[in-house]
Simulated scan of single mutants.
Amino acid sequence: MDLRIFTEPQQGASYDDQLRVAKATEAAGYDAFFRSDHYLKMGSADGLPGPTDAWISLAGLARETSRIRLGTLVTAATFRHPGPLAISVAQVDQMSGGRVEFGFGAGWYDAEHQAYGLTLPPLKERFDRYAEQLEIITGLWKTPAGETYSFKGEHYTLTDSPALPKPAQSPAPPVIIGGSGKKRTPALAARFADEFNLPFADQETAAAQFARVEAAAQEIGRDPKEILRSVALVVGVGRDDAEVERRASAIGRDAEGLRKSGLAGTPAEVVDRIGQWREKTGITRVYLQLLDLSDLDQIDLIASEVAPQLD
């Protein structure tokens, strides 16, 4: 079972805050450090000192870490044009020595689009654009060196692109797709995803969505086992009940509620909970959403007392 640290810097974190967490993640032996790609805080957080750009931040982390995988859950298709985005991600992959994973979604948070002058199209158009972007970005990466790439869709047209630079990973960085849409999301995952992630869902919902992805893959003749299954869950692990309560309170959550909806409790409770998830849904990877980026002790606690008990 892979354990990855997943952060939400738009809630209030500088690049230096992220660097401390990424270095602690690497030192503790985790598989990866991921971050959200958002430009506006959510809920009651103050969001200070303000947002950081996901791919600029990951470029910095690529040079200041050496082993952990780096990526987004998830970059919004509404934020960037596909050609320049393919260049940015490929460059960060080169800068990291081939450690990037590309989480990519259609975009959803209306308030951040309004706050920064971004367009959030209606849902159907948004998914149409998202599908074209997936085609373009993966097409650019996979075009053999020395050849050109062209694409003509309803929303984007590329003509004789040199399709450069190439990512360090060949033919491309892993693509992560997620979400709860019942038709188009599984269909796109079947075509493009190396991993399908379901964030903040219950086990029954996750199992049903993974089954839809599996069916969509079979429909186009792809082996569903090629698509890794993962979930993202809010974490609140403590050595005893008092520490669990303290960690839940620090992120504005109720400990009992967090036990039910996330991964909260003592190490033994969390090991059992992850085992239930694996049995019910077939996941092999968990993104631990760490909302308190000052809590490096929790990173070490999970690494030392939870991870060794997972196969």
Results as ranks from 00 to 15, higher is better:
248 A>L: 06
39 Y>T: 12
268 A>S: 15
21 V>N: 01
106 A>E: 06
46 D>M: 09
67 R>E: 02
143 T>F: 04
217 A>E: 04
43 G>P: 05
217 A>C: 07
87 I>W: 02
49 P>L: 14
140 L>V: 13
90 A>Q: 05
29 G>N: 01
31 D>E: 11
143 T>K: 06
233 L>C: 03
306 V>H: 04
158 L>G: 12
307 A>K: 02
218 Q>K: 15
89 V>S: 01
7 T>I: 03
176 I>V: 13
73 L>K: 00
174 P>D: 08
129 R>A: 11
288 L>N: 00
181 G>N: 10
257 G>W: 04
91 Q>M: 10
63 R>Q: 09
110 D>S: 15
13 A>L: 00
295 D>G: 06
11 Q>W: 09
93 D>P: 06
119 T>E: 15
258 L>T: 09
234 V>H: 03
269 E>F: 02
154 E>P: 07
115 A>I: 10
249 S>R: 13
247 R>P: 01
281 T>D: 05
37 D>P: 03
9 P>T: 14
17 D>G: 00
19 L>W: 02
118 L>Y: 12
215 A>W: 08
141 W>R: 10
69 R>I: 00
174 P>Y: 10
83 G>F: 08
110 D>W: 11
213 V>C: 07
158 L>Y: 12
310 L>C: 03
220 I>C: 02
298 Q>E: 08
69 R>F: 00
298 Q>T: 13
190 A>H: 08
6 F>R: 00
81 H>K: 13
273 R>C: 01
51 P>T: 10
107 G>F: 08
109 Y>T: 08
184 R>T: 14
274 I>N: 09
51 P>S: 12
299 I>A: 01
211 A>H: 08
46 D>E: 13
111 A>T: 12
136 I>N: 06
159 T>Q: 15
243 E>V: 06
116 Y>F: 13
89 V>N: 01
36 S>V: 09
102 F>H: 06
151 F>Q: 11
144 P>C: 05
8 E>I: 08
3 L>V: 03
26 E>M: 04
141 W>I: 14
284 T>R: 14
6 F>D: 01
72 T>Q: 01
141 W>Q: 08
56 I>P: 00
183 K>L: 12
162 P>F: 12
287 Y>F: 11
288 L>C: 02
299 I>S: 00
168 A>Y: 13
273 R>A: 03
39 Y>H: 05
48 L>D: 15
84 P>G: 07
265 G>I: 02
177 I>W: 02
107 G>H: 10
101 E>R: 02
266 T>C: 07
210 F>R: 09
302 I>M: 00
134 L>W: 05
283 I>S: 08
146 G>E: 08
178 G>V: 14
260 K>E: 09
121 P>E: 14
157 T>Y: 10
